[in-house]
């Protein structure tokens, strides 16, 4: 009975994280997808709100007109046509977003601690699932919406099922979970851990972020193909494609960027089947080899020898 409690806690945390990820993040992401650049008007961002969340549908504010609706739209910073592209509500700078980040980070770290501290293997797997769901929500905050969904499907779905199956097959309680490897081993392990923490801290201190916290660059996808023969960004073709030429930082080449396509299936797929086509095909071979290898390894070596089989053969396989 005592061992049920951590499982229940893990399940509750899991449900909390799942509902939070789905309910709290989906509307803001949906709003983000509706910001478009009007072709032919460089520098002017026109935002069209189309059925996103609870907002009234169909309120294009391309040209300010003296109707009350347009005035209301102009007072709303989200609908202001002159607003710069990176000041819309999707930037991760609001307090609500910050609190959500802390909640999901807590879920991820708490689940991970659950994994390494639990004796009960099923409880450890449930902690792992909670951790992965928190990580998926954090991916969503990094505008990696496609990878967030993939994370939920592959990790919280497939790999979790795999682990649960193997635990059910083994079905053995641990007698002594943590390794008592003697004083020397513990000293070496602690030193290695301290060194790792130190190196990671030094690396993180050296990271030079673009100046303001989460604002630049606006969620973009670069289209490298839209270039003049000299290698510069082709302004006319880029704007025809709905983007504009911009740089990400000092000493960076100008690239054609389409706003608010970042991390979607379209942008990831464009990269995956363009420059990433060879790794993608190599992955299919890797998965095939892995599946065949897993079956070959996990298959019993000698199972039910045939009644009429050669006795020496049976003895040899018994020995192996």
């Amino acid at each position: 009975m005592r061992t049920r409690i951590p499982i229940l806690i893990a399940a509750a945390a899991l449900a909390l994280v799942a509902t939070g990820a789905a309910g709290a993040l989906a509307p803001s992401i949906a709003v983000a997808q509706n910001v478009v650049i009007q072709p032919g008007q460089p520098g002017v961002v026109v935002q069209q709100v189309q059925g996103a969340g609870a907002r009234p549908t169909g309120a294009p504010t391309a040209a300010p007109s003296p109707t009350p609706r347009a005035e209301a739209a102009a007072s709303d910073p989200r609908l202001n046509p002159k607003a710069p592209p990176h000041l819309d509500e999707i930037e991760s700078t609001g307090k609500g977003t910050a609190l959500l980040f802390w909640a999901f980070a807590l879920a991820a770290v708490g689940g991970a601690l659950f994994v390494v501290t639990r004796r009960n293997l099923i409880a450890a797997v449930m902690g792992m699932v909670g951790s992965f769901l928190g990580i998926a929500a954090v991916y969503m905050m990094l505008y990696a919406s496609f990878l967030s969904v993939i994370q939920m499907l592959v990790y919280a779905g497939a790999i979790m099922v795999l682990f649960v199956f193997v635990i059910m097959i083994l079905n053995r309680p641990e007698d002594e979970p943590v390794a008592p490897s003697g004083r020397a081993g513990q000293a070496i392990g602690s030193l290695a851990m301290v060194y790792l923490v130190f190196r990671l801290g030094m690396l993180l201190i050296d990271v030079k972020a673009p100046e303001s916290a989460m604002a630049p660059p606006a969620p973009t996808v670069a289209i490298v193909a839209v270039r003049t023969p000299e290698g510069a960004c082709d302004v006319a073709r880029c704007e025809a494609a709905g983007g504009r030429c911009s740089v990400t930082g000092p000493n960076q080449p100008q690239l054609c960027r389409v706003l608010h396509e970042w991390g979607t299936v379209k942008s990831v797929g464009t990269d995956l089947f363009g420059p990433g086509a060879f790794p993608f095909e190599a992955i299919s071979i890797l998965l095939l080899v892995a599946v065949v290898g897993a079956i070959a390894i996990a298959r019993p070596l000698h199972e039910d020898p045939k009644p009429g089989a050669d006795a020496a053969d049976a003895a040899r396989s018994e020995h192996a």
Partner: peptide, 11 residues
């Protein structure tokens, strides 16, 4: 602003 890391993460 480099989307190719998403491909890498998928792999």
């Amino acid at each position: 602003g480099d989307i190719s890391a998403h491909t890498f993460a998928l792999i």
